[in-house]
Every structure is written in C-alpha cells, then in structure tokens.
Simulated scan of single mutants.
Amino acid sequence: MNSWSSLTHLEADRFAVIKRPVIILALLTLLIVGGTLGFRIVNETSWLESLYLAVITLTTLGCRDPATSNATMAFVVIYLGFGLGLFSYSLFSLGQSLLDPQFRQFWKQRRMINKIDSLKDHHIVCGFGRMGRTICEYLDRRNRPFVVIDLDGDVLEAHCTAHNWLYIVGDATDDVHLQNAGISRASSLASVLPSDSDNTYVVLSARMLNNGLQIVARASDEKAIQKIERAGATRVISPFSSGGMKMARFMINPSVESFVEVADKHDSDLELVDIQIKETSSLVGKKLSETKLAEQGVMILAIRRANGEQLLPPPGASILHAGDNLFAFGHANKVAMVISNCEE
C-alpha cells in the first residue's frame, strides 16, 4: 500500500506533525507566487525576473532595488509588511518540524512500510511477548523474512531496531495492521497475544484475509483451543500442555528428545524442514532413490502426498509428484540446496 490510507493508526495520529511542515511550505510557496504575480503586474517584468525580485525582496538579500515606480515601491512596502514576518516565522517553524522526533519517527515507519510492501511469502508474528520474541529469534536465525505487530512501540523500537526486524506498532486484531503487514502475500502467521479472545479474533480476521495462510495460534486451555481451531487456525499450541508433554517425553525417552532438540539449538547447523515440491521442480517424476539426497547429506523422513497419503518411511522407489511435501533432515546448507531444487 502506497497511499496515506495505508498508514497505521499510530501514523494517522502523527499526521498533524506531518501536516505542519506541509502547511508551512504551502504558505511560503503562496508568498513567492503572490510576489511574482505582483511584480509581474506592477513592474511589467518577465516571469523569471518577477520571480527573482519576489525572492530577493522576501529574503531581504538586497541584490537589486526592485522599485522602478511609485506603484512598485508601494507594492514592496505592502509585500514586506505582510510577508517578511510570516516568512521568518515559517522558516523557523519548518526547521523545528524537521527536527521533531515524531517527524523522524513517522518517516522511519513510512520507510519500514515500504520495505514490508516488497515482502512475499514472509511470516507475520502478532504479539511480542516471550513467545513472540522466541519465534522472531528462531525466524531470524533461519534467515526467514517476518513482520512483528504489537501495541508496545517502545519495546518494538528497543528490540526490533537493534536486530533490523520489521515491525508495525498497532493492535493486531485490527485488519488494517494485518493488511499493512502484507497478509495477502504472507505464507504464515503466528498469533501469540496474551488473551485467548484476541488470538481468536486475529485468527478469524487472518483467515478471512488470506484463506490459504498457515496460521499457528496460542491458547491457554482446551476450550480455547477448540474455539481458535473453529476460527480457522491451522495449528493451536497450548504452552502448558505442550510443555507438560515434552517433560513427559524427557522422562520416558531422554536420549531421543535430546537428539530432536539438536535442530532447535542456536548454534546448530541442522535443520528439520517441510519442503513442498512445485510443478517446476527438477525432482518431479523422479524416484526418491534417483535424487541421491541421502548421498548429499539430507535424510527424507517422510513424504506426504497432495491427497493426504503419508509414506513413513518412504521407499526408495517412491516417485515424487508436484504438490508432495518432503520432511527433510540434514545440515542447513544441504537442506537449502534441496529447497532450491524443489522450487526450480
């Protein structure tokens, strides 16, 4: 969105700050145009000379005496009487406006919106609490583009600016902010707001704005999980239940859980990803054994067909089709190569 209507509500509140220098520039332009017309009429000079006389008179440079007749002298007196004070005050006010922190913040947010407008297949994180920050850190480590939406502008400014993360200050339950975050072009959205009702509303709005969006939401209990799923969430996570299940798995199979966690460590070079094969992929029509992915250091754990059929583990004779999802595990650079082959 490249119009004033695309600005966030916070930017709309700052419109008065932007309107002030615009009005000042309009007044200065009006003064110069009025002076140019005046000199053109009373002095009968060319348009360029009239403009020149208006500027040097208004700025009191005194490079040339514009008075050539009584009418011109009278016009200069009136012109300076009305215009000189307004001109000096306008320049002073314009300088103040350009140095105003809100003015600079407005244009910073405006540049950020322009960057967001260029994103495609990115991720949106609604809420910048502990879970939101964890999600952002994970996406950042994987070099995945994302946009954060949160009401707390100070917190976003402090954390996101330091990491060069894109953000929008505003209420994620408002469709305007979701649209400004590029939800129509996004691939997924995470709603991790503190309130279950807010998460439900975000999921409902997001599903209406992008029916094919992958939506993951946070819920506090089983009742909330059901409501958010009905609202359109692809997956709903309860931190308490998922945390309890994870602890139980550690109790029963500690070694297995430790191995699975390797891919999630900050300094890990391993990736566990879900890759979709596109129609243009060079892998379409090949057997899994013919791709030689295992020899390249990438293990295909499972294949999910477009019709929902799952191959776990997949036989080497399995033929890959467009729309299949490969669940791959391996080193980040090797997995990235597989993703590239699946998209080309």
Rank of each mutant, 00 (worst) to 15 (best):
R142N: 12
L80Q: 11
N180A: 12
A336K: 12
A74P: 00
S93P: 00
Q310T: 13
L31S: 06
D117P: 00
T57F: 00
S282N: 11
V77Q: 09
S281L: 08
P66H: 03
L30F: 06
L86F: 04
F75E: 03
D140Q: 08
F39L: 02
R230V: 02
E49H: 12
L283P: 02
D100V: 01
G182Q: 06
R130S: 13
E222Q: 14
Q310F: 00
I23M: 12
Q310P: 00
F329I: 14
N199K: 10
L30Q: 07
S90V: 05
A219F: 13
E157Y: 08
Q214E: 12
P66Y: 02
I277E: 08
Y79L: 02
S197I: 09
I32S: 06
I78E: 01
E344I: 05
V236H: 08
F106I: 09
Q214P: 00
V236F: 04
C136Q: 01
Q179T: 07
C136R: 01
N307W: 04
E344S: 13
F146A: 04
A54Q: 01
D117M: 04
Q179H: 03
M299H: 06
L86E: 06
S195A: 14
E137Q: 11
M337L: 10
I23H: 07
W4C: 03
P66E: 03
H331R: 14
K246S: 11
V298S: 10
K120I: 08
S97A: 15
T8D: 13
G285H: 07
G127A: 10
F240V: 13
S88H: 05
V77R: 12
P194H: 13
Q102E: 15
L166I: 01
M131N: 08
A74H: 12
S118V: 08
G316V: 01
A172W: 03
L99N: 14
A181Y: 00
S281T: 09
L7G: 05
K287E: 14
R130P: 06
V262E: 11
D174N: 14
T45Y: 14
W107E: 12
F82L: 15
F15C: 02
F106C: 09
D117Q: 13
L156I: 07
T291P: 08
I149W: 05
I168V: 10
F92D: 01
I339K: 14
E309F: 03
M1R: 09
I135V: 15
L27Y: 05
I228V: 11
K223F: 06
L84H: 08
A54M: 02
G323W: 10
G330Q: 11
K120P: 00
D267P: 00
A158E: 15
T291S: 10
T291E: 02
K334G: 02
G308M: 03
T45M: 03
L25V: 12
N164I: 00
N199G: 04
A162K: 14
L311C: 04
S97K: 11
D274M: 03
Q296M: 15
H177A: 05
N2I: 12
R207M: 06
H266D: 08
V202A: 11
I168P: 14
L213S: 13
E343K: 12
S188M: 02
